[in-house]
């Protein structure tokens, strides 16, 4: 990882001159700030960085980064970014999306991006609500959620974004949260190192329409009970090390370390294990603490690399046909 003092530009230079227009107190501010502080140290030149977003509150993000950027249309950022990477593979591309943008209107593009494994990073700001349109339930809102468009409670079963990403064979899957800057920066740095599509779900508080949705994961008093910080090669511990998770076959169980269990009995986090990653992604109800960190990573050739390899191979075996030969084709005749 690049040392901070090797930063190619400053955090201030990473910010554009545009006035940031999220609601005061919105979790987006924290994510923007961490991005602006992390990105100069990634060893990438500012001109080689591109942010591509769709539509929604989070999708205003590119306007605030002093890099290349595109605020595209609702749900389509993964496809725009894929096209960009195919023709300009050296760029560092960051897709900024939200739960509505990425999982509802753009759900199709997201899963296809993940299976193709284009080398870019997807930051999905999950606030479990439609903010920009003023508060309708989203595909990650809990069932029964009462909003203006669901006065009697939402009937939609919510998506589990990480399980969805793993189901689409994503090669890098992580979760972090707006209120933990250190963790957020760490995940951003790690995702940048991954070659392939990095999928990062960021819990983001919408303090206007869905305030406190993730309070139990950020509130100092509650979070110890409710979160597990995943660390490579370390046991799954929570509640200040008093509790842990062990695997009984494929069944996870919460165990109390004060009741005769030791760290040796616990599930050791291995982000290369797809089965375990899937089990972790199902820690999605109140029975288990919510995991944060890198759930899964895998080395798989990325799409644009393979595309370029095919092109090089074709050039090698067929030679680069000259335009005249191409226009002439295989069968031509002369009239004289």
């Amino acid at each position: 990882m690049t040392e901070p003092n090797s930063a190619l530009f400053t955090a201030k230079e990473a910010a554009s001159d545009q006035e940031v227009r999220w609601c005061p107190g919105c979790g987006d501010y924290s994510i923007l700030k961490q991005m602006q502080s992390v990105i100069p140290g990634l060893g990438i030149k500012r001109e080689d960085i591109v942010f591509i977003s769709g539509i929604g509150c989070s999708s205003r993000f590119p306007y605030y980064m002093n890099t290349y950027g595109m605020h595209s249309i609702h749900g389509r950022a993964p496809a725009v970014a894929s096209g960009l990477k195919m023709v300009n593979p050296n760029l560092s591309v960051w897709v900024i999306t939200g739960d509505g943008d990425g999982l509802s209107i753009g759900g199709n593009h997201l899963i296809h991006l993940l299976r193709r494994n284009v080398n870019l990073n997807v930051l999905l700001f999950n606030n479990e609500i439609y903010g920009l349109t003023k508060g309708q339930y989203s595909p990650t809102s809990e069932m029964g959620k009462r909003t203006k468009s669901s006065p009697m409670g939402s009937l939609d079963h919510p998506f589990n974004p990480l399980a969805l990403a793993l189901g689409a064979d994503a090669t890098f899957v992580a979760r972090t949260i707006d209120r933990d800057p250190v963790h957020l920066r760490g995940v951003l740095e790690t995702s940048n190192l991954h070659k392939g599509t990095s999928f990062i779900e960021i819990y983001q508080n919408c303090n206007v329409f869905n305030d406190g949705a993730f309070l139990s994961y950020s509130d100092k008093k509650q979070k110890g009970q409710h979160i597990i910080l995943l660390e490579e090669g370390k046991p799954l511990l929570f509640d200040e090390g008093n509790k842990g998770i062990r695997l009984n076959g494929l069944k996870p169980e919460i165990v109390n370390l004060e009741e005769g269990f030791s760290a040796n009995d616990l599930w050791i986090h291995d982000s290369r294990d797809a089965t375990k990653a899937y089990i972790l992604s199902r820690f999605f109800d109140d029975n288990f603490p919510r995991p944060f960190g890198v759930f899964y990573q895998e080395d798989r050739p990325c799409y644009e690399e393979q595309l370029i390899a095919q092109i090089n191979h074709a050039k090698e075996i067929q030679g680069e046909t000259d335009l005249d030969d191409l226009l002439r084709g295989k069968r031509s005749w002369t009239v004289d």
Partner: peptide
């Protein structure tokens, strides 16, 4: 939209 990205 991939063509839009490629054009960009």
């Amino acid at each position: 939209t991939s063509a839009i990205g490629a054009s960009f």
